[in-house]
Design a protein around this nucleic acid. Structure first.
Lengths: 345, 345
DNA sequence: CTGTTAGCGCTTTCAA
DNA sequence: TTGAAAGCGCTAACAG
């Protein structure tokens, strides 16, 4: 059992506790033989320094807190992984709190009051554990201003943002612009878009990218090709049916997420419209299943790992007293698969 | 900034530090007015107790360590969530370490030496942080005997096991038996099975369940219906082609995971064998995508949340000085969807 | 009901 | 090159 303290080591090695501390931390020159003797005793007794005592004394923990709204939501684990990746390099430690929002409050993210309590408790606990900063991982990009009071400690948001604190997000607008360009490059001009719920940031940004491409490439603009979904497969299904029933149906659909793309697939299949031969499809998120569908769908990969990594970097920079710095937004990357082909004429 | 200590509170509230501590912990009766005064000052100054100091003094941290081999692997987040769920109720805290094994060593889990170092460091760090016990979450069920020396602190394994320590796993054998029964109940008797790699524990156990059903229900036993896959979609694809080319092909396939089931779907589609009309299919794992395939596939849901929950419970019991206790293995649950139908005759 | 005080295990200043 | 000793912020035994 680890009730061995520096004192036990000191006694057994016949030195003072100070000396043990010196060899442990390399804070001072210690005679070679002494050092070796101490090291050996440490080894023998399998001594592990008590981190609580160290933190108390040093008044530093090298630890940051990570608050995840829900670790079971698809984007979160990869972001955590990115944070870990960076933290390992910086020799920082992570204290992870899982708010379990999905299980506890379902999808009602609109009303912050319902989960503010959870967030506050998490922050409070983390602060109590002397973290030097916090990274907050949302499950859905939205404005979280006023959610957490971190008592002056720096906080960085990912996959969400606030008015005052730094936040790391990928470039949604660029992503949908790229997707459109890819479709256009393949010869499409009658391109429909199925959005997520319209009060969501990504929906708006992705629309911007869409419009930008439409404008820039002078595509015929047809409001009938713009459909408002709600992120769920059912809406993709329903809207695709509408789209394909149009007198002049689109030759390609850009779906704002992969889940709705599943609905597109189903609708197309039911209407005997084959993808990609008669209809091209691009999804968003590069969800794991997008690769398993038939056909495997072309989709936008979200730079989740990098978002986490950058969040950790930014926080570290702030901790060093530097500016958060505005590294360029991580970019999405198109994963080319089998759901896009030139339109048949 | 939280450099406010109990002393500051004591001074401002004109009491001793002891009194502050008493009201904070409710360890002793404190006169109503005094308590309120203290509480108010605490509130005013936004005081948060220093956890490091508390732990040091109390010699208890109420904290356990969780070592996840890789948080980005599908089974892990849900297990973590279960641990969290239980830990919240027990008022225990979690220190999570992500080994990042998938990114660092890929799939070479066979050679423990390649990752022992990571595991040892993780344990060592956790011990240093005074965790009272550890839960280890594997990404693949296998024997981990000798991986970690926890220096006498209790450890519970999930999704893996060792010879000497308690471990929580679901019942693989029962699961495949149930799947078989479901198929049999639907009228199938010529049932093929596509396994994972054969040196894996789940493969063997699921085979046992398969045999048990075959024996118990006196199905015609045909070795041609037994195929060894490797967990990947490609193997499901290839083996299904073999199966469907048999003089007397099976009417149903039990695939030992959902990924290989995707291969089954592809092969069947290519050979114009429709599922479930001409071929029934059951998968394993209830991966998210299984619901998005066409048809939505019937699959065995793994009780991941419960595994995590039970691991935490078991650890807590050990910490209380009780026996780990052998609660019954959590059961898998068949998720009925659209890939099973009676065989056509 | 409240206060004084010894220490938890460690780092670090000061002194030798 | 080493040691003595003062605390870091807190809890709890002891005293009143």
């Amino acid at each position: 059992m680890s009730n061995i303290s520096i004192k036990d080591i000191a006694a057994k090695a016949q030195v003072s506790t100070a000396t043990v501390s010196y060899v442990l931390n390399g804070t001072r020159n210690v005679k070679q033989v002494t050092r070796e003797r101490v090291l050996q005793v440490i080894e023998e007794m399998n001594y592990k320094p008590n981190n609580a005592a160290q933190s108390l004394k040093r008044r530093r923990t090298n630890t940051i807190g990570v608050i995840a709204e829900d670790v079971t939501v698809f984007n979160v684990p990869e972001i955590i992984d990115g944070i870990n990746d960076c933290a390992d390099r910086l020799d920082m430690h992570i204290l992870l709190t899982n708010l379990r929002l999905d299980k506890r409050i379902g999808r009602s993210f609109d009303d912050m009051d319902t989960y503010r309590q959870y967030a506050e408790n998490a922050v409070s606990e983390l602060l109590s554990k002397q973290v030097e900063g916090i990274i907050y991982i949302g499950v859905h990009p939205r404005d979280l201003t006023g959610l957490c009071d971190t008592d002056g400690k720096p906080i960085v948001y990912t996959y969400s943002y606030t008015e005052n604190d730094p936040s790391i997000q990928y470039d949604d607008e660029q992503a949908s612009y790229e997707a459109m360009r890819y479709l256009i490059d393949h010869g499409h001009s009658r391109i429909a878009i199925i959005s997520g719920v319209m009060d969501s940031i990504p929906s708006r940004l992705r629309f911007n990218g869409f419009y930008k491409a439409v404008t820039e490439f002078q595509l015929p603009f047809d409001p009938l090709l713009i459909k408002m979904g709600d992120w769920e497969a059912e809406s993709g299904y329903r809207l695709t049916k509408e789209l394909l029933s149009l007198p002049e149906p689109p030759t390609a659909i850009l779906s704002m997420n992969d889940v709705m793309a599943v609905g597109v697939l189903r609708a197309a299949s039911e209407m005997s419209v084959s993808i990609p031969e008669q209809l091209s499809l691009i999804g968003f998120d590069n969800r794991e299943f997008s690769e398993y569908l038939m056909p495997r769908i072309t989709t936008m990969d979200l730079p989740l790992h990098e978002i986490g990594y950058q969040a950790m970097e930014a926080l570290s920079r702030i901790l060093q007293g530097e500016e958060a710095g505005i590294s360029p937004k991580p970019m999405c990357r198109l994963i080319e698969r089998d759901s896009v082909a030139p339109p048949k004429r």
